[in-house]
Design a protein around this nucleic acid. Sequence first.
DNA 1: TTTTAGCACTGAACAATAATGAGTGCCAGT
DNA 2: ACTGGCACTCATTATTGTTCAGTGCTAAAA
Lengths: 341, 341
Amino acid sequence: MSASGGDFMDERQKELLKEIVETYIKTIKPVGSKGLCDKFKLSSATIRNEMAILEHYGYLEKNHVSSGRIPSEKGYKYYVENLMKPKELNGEEMLKLQTIFHNQELQISDTIQECMQIISEMTNYTSVVLGKSSRENALRQVSIVPLENNQVIALVCTDKGIVENKTFKIPETILIDELVKTSEIINKMLIGTPIDEVSERLEFEIKPIISKRIKQYEAVYEIFYDAFSDFTKNSTNIFFSGKSNMLMQPEYDDVEEIKRIIGKFEDESLIQSIESNDEGINVYIGDENKFDPNVTVVKTHYSLNGEEGTIAIVGPKRMEYDKVFALLEYINNELDKRKNE
Amino acid sequence: MSASGGDFMDERQKELLKEIVETYIKTIKPVGSKGLCDKFKLSSATIRNEMAILEHYGYLEKNHVSSGRIPSEKGYKYYVENLMKPKELNGEEMLKLQTIFHNQELQISDTIQECMQIISEMTNYTSVVLGKSSRENALRQVSIVPLENNQVIALVCTDKGIVENKTFKIPETILIDELVKTSEIINKMLIGTPIDEVSERLEFEIKPIISKRIKQYEAVYEIFYDAFSDFTKNSTNIFFSGKSNMLMQPEYDDVEEIKRIIGKFEDESLIQSIESNDEGINVYIGDENKFDPNVTVVKTHYSLNGEEGTIAIVGPKRMEYDKVFALLEYINNELDKRKNE
DNA sequence: TTTTAGCACTGAACAATAATGAGTGCCAGT
DNA sequence: ACTGGCACTCATTATTGTTCAGTGCTAAAA
């Protein structure tokens, strides 16, 4: 045996592993020795010997003693870290993403959402964008926008760029002016307060103040309370795209498994756990991720002008890593460009 | 044979059909004659004869010659129209819904969304709320809300109560005041315009006007254009709750079927086709609905103070119709109450 | 006329068995 | 160091038999 572990694989073994991973990604069928003869100009027996070595070190697996090989999680990992080259984006893909980034007026989070939507279409995987969770959002501004017919829109926005609106029908007894005044007071006193503390301060700091100036202060308080509480409830700032894409992948051919994964997608706290603060692009294959042992999560953190969050691609372990990496790298680069502008 | 079709069924046959439908709804197992003996104080042979009659007229079906009976779509339909009594809501359910309706300040569509969310939890089916599609929404108001750092929020709201916001970073060269002025012009000229015609009128009516007053009019135009186009894109004002609930129903135990239904849920135009303008609560069982031959859609239209839309419950054909009806009727009643206030 | 007991029959569901074939490990020979 | 050959393994598929819930029908009882 000429390979021990890790980087002691010889060139041929690396080539072989690479070929097996890529073939399996394409076909989802265990890769047998015969099919590789042509490519390597070797007999199947020789290939089998090499495969046995790769299996011995944990890079390959067999479903049963006489089946072809499939990459193990360790095998995928080695492939991603050492063998894979990010695929070049083709012109069309490039163009689509560029037009989105070109629009400088958009908020970063909107730009990213649009990108991820495109990416989920291009890859057939599921993409996720996680804004900073609400506990880390601080109040930036609250506004009252009057409509006709005693209706108003209450706008709440945070320093991380999240905006929520809610429309209220206000009773005749409340003057819009009172709402506006109250919003101004809130803006003076509570800006910078973490969103999930706003409710409390609203009650103990704002309510006493307006109670002296406004007759129907309870009703006014209720409105702002509602506006904020809705915000806290929707705290999970999660954007999905192509949720069903990955379920359509042929490896998910078992009802229980599909149902399990659907369930996970509905579990917001689990989705939230995808959040990442690490630099660069990180891959979590199978058991490595908290989400589900049968999927791969590729994620990266973004941050620009105060807006920040995590973007992630969720797909089968048999993922086209080269393509996904290329796409995420592209986004990272674009964001870097903007940073240095 | 004593029953011909429709209402010529005798009492016992009606009772029998009712029992079979309700048993099947509970158990999902074909209902055999033996199990019904006790209930009806008859021998299995007699029951079998009656079942044969019901089958002959199309109310029951067999999976194969020697299986128990399951209700046909016609059988469900007859059950819903003639045999079923809406179940009384229990106190807890009542209470939950009442607290939502109690909040008079909320917009109708918000109230309804919250209700349907609760309902999907209570029934384990999927609930859908469809606002009037954007073509039927007319512009009500556009507002510019300034933030610090050269950012603004553009708010677009329609007469049917939909509000969308989008945040922009505006170049130094544009003055916020110019944006506000433009929004005022739009409000003067375009209010009442159907949303999907706004873009056009924006270009041909507004653009020429601001081009005379504003230097960077192109950029200003772009911002409003973006704000509206986003609106048109999200035109489909669809709110889902418990999307996965119904997939968890045990009858969906086939991968292909699950994938098919997931696909349908993603097809916005199909979802849109659920829209209804009919009075009262309508049931579309299996082939009767455009959505999917293996589900039932129960829907009703709501309209109050100009806001209108459709609410629907999507579940298996084997649905707890009595419960679903009770819930939707409750909502309808609450809305009626408000109408007469 | 209505109901029932009895009996032959059906077809799904399950288990056991056999045949097929892709793929393996290993060994002896080049 | 590589290859041809061979025995072996096990998923997959097809085949057969067994069981059993449930049916339709008929002749007798109510």
